Amino acid sequence: MTDHPLQAWRDTLEDLGVMGLVREPMAAPEPIPAPPGPRPADLRLGLRPASNPVAQRPVPPRPSSAPPTAYVRPTDPIGCPPPEAVAAAATLADLERAVQGCLACPLGPGRLKFVFGEGDPEARLMFVGEGPGRDEDLQGRPFVGKAGELLDKMIGAIGLKREDTYIANVVKCRPPDNRTPAPEEARACLGYLHRQIELIQPAVIVTLGATPLRELVGVGEGITKVRGQWKRVRIAGREIPVMPTFHPAYVLRQYTQDVRRAVWEDLKAAKEWVDKAAEDQGLKTED
């Protein structure tokens, strides 16, 4: 039998240590595991698996449900003026200097300006509102926004000017978003307001809205029920008549003839009391 033409070539390769012309097949690489498919429960719920699970962002931790840390009032005499310093103030200017750095409640650190109050230090008629708004916080003066413009007109309607009266608020710093001051915030400022009233000695106080009526006078009924009804507040052993009426901001929101007439009647009654008190004081002086 004649040898195959390639037999000699094969014999030569075997002599050289080459066992064959065909390379042995390489071992097949291990298959890369595919991403896990959707679980049966996910399919039932209609949930689709993520296209790239590795690239998914980690789920952020849930915010803590722990209550916010209580505000810690300072202990220094500037951040928390002691009652002795408030009582020792002989004038409104002295009082303002003593309390203008107050941080005794959470409103203090958020204010732009401390809104002490302004007007005649011997005013016979005093207005007390709730707290500063945005414009008051910017300027450091009470009632200078739209509500303040209306208050000026209300004062003018009874024959007085703004500077003939004294205007202050229960709290001296702006509450966030102009919300109603919290009871603890009002209590932190109430001593300052009491001392203002002691120094001014007004014949009549007009409270504007429900907050000063509640915090200063202690009447918690709605302002719509008690407006126009005389109340009294005792400050330093002296009883002062109080006329509750609507806040000018409320009048702007409810600018009806009935609301405006009600405020007019309230202020007219307050002015008549002031005039009567001045007349009585004049008679006592002559005697």
Rank of each mutant, 00 (worst) to 15 (best):
D275N: 11
V86E: 14
Q196T: 08
D152T: 10
Q254S: 13
Y255W: 13
V86D: 13
F143C: 13
R141H: 05
A210P: 06
P49D: 04
L107N: 04
A98R: 01
V128W: 00
L45P: 02
I155S: 02
A88Q: 09
V242P: 00
G37R: 08
P106W: 14
R57V: 09
D76P: 13
V217S: 05
P81D: 02
A123M: 01
P142V: 07
D266M: 04
G237S: 02
K284G: 06
E272H: 07
P83F: 09
E185F: 00
T12H: 11
E30N: 10
R73A: 15
A277N: 00
A66K: 08
T207V: 15
P5D: 09
R238E: 05
G131E: 11
P106F: 10
V170T: 12
G46E: 09
E96N: 13
L199H: 02
V233H: 01
V86G: 05
G129R: 03
P63I: 03
A28M: 15
C80H: 15
C102A: 12
S64M: 03
P132Q: 00
V233E: 01
S64T: 05
F246C: 04
A203N: 04
P40K: 15
A104G: 14
I240Q: 06
N178R: 03
D42Q: 14
P109N: 11
Q201I: 02
P83S: 06
D275E: 15
V170H: 03
P63K: 10
P5V: 11
G108I: 03
R44Q: 14
Q100S: 13
G228D: 02
F116T: 01
G131D: 12
R44D: 09
E130H: 02
T245L: 04
Q139M: 11
P67Q: 02
P29W: 03
G79V: 08
P25F: 08
L160E: 05
V18L: 15
L283P: 05
R179M: 06
A66Q: 09
T2W: 15
V259S: 07
Q139D: 08
L43Q: 15
V22T: 13
I167E: 03
P49H: 03
P68G: 09
I200F: 05
V86K: 12
P53W: 01
R10H: 14
R39P: 01
G110R: 04
A278P: 00
A186K: 01
E84K: 12
L45G: 09
G218P: 03
P212V: 05
A98Y: 06
L13S: 03
G17D: 05
Q254P: 06
I32F: 11
P181E: 12
R10D: 12
P31C: 06
D258E: 14
V128H: 01
L13H: 04
K276I: 07
Q257G: 11
G131V: 08
